[in-house]
């Protein structure tokens, strides 16, 4: 039965309890790659936690490379020991997200996307 349990009496913070249990399920193969984790709102309501607490646990799992979050598709489980292809897809997704963040930041400075790419080229060639 794939369930996460949170115990208020435990000295371990709630977000860490959620993170460690989900991580263990992914590593043991109980949660298989491509499966969706429940939305933050649903899990938070079920566990009686604040949405931020569950979001923090999901963010930690994402930084470990165990799940990937997508605004539209929800949170997807990745392979614990990812195959080269899956790993590449994941890294491409992370690079794309970083690029979106970069373009948004440069856009705030008043540069269009073309100029932003020029800046990247200049910096890369200088390296």
């Amino acid at each position: 039965m794939r369930a996460v349990v949170v115990d208020d009496a435990s000295p371990v913070p709630s977000f860490e309890q959620v993170r460690s249990q989900v991580a263990a399920m992914i590593r043991s193969g109980e949660l298989s790659p491509g499966e969706h984790l429940p939305p933050v709102r649903q899990l938070a309501a079920d566990l009686g936690l604040a949405k931020n607490t569950v979001a923090k646990a999901y963010a930690a799992l994402e930084s470990e490379g165990l799940v990937v979050g997508d605004r539209r598709r929800g949170t997807l489980v990745l392979a614990a020991s990812a195959s080269p292809e899956t790993d590449r897809v994941r890294r491409v997704e992370m690079a794309e997200r970083a690029a979106v963040r970069y373009l948004a930041e440069v856009g705030h400075l008043g540069f269009p996307a073309v100029d932003a790419i020029d800046v990247v080229r200049r910096v890369a060639s200088a390296d």
Partner: peptide, 15 residues
């Protein structure tokens, strides 16, 4: 209301 008790469980399936 949230059920009473300090120990709570949630299933990992999207409803």
């Amino acid at each position: 209301r949230r059920p009473p008790g300090g120990r709570r469980a949630a299933h990992l399936a999207t409803r």
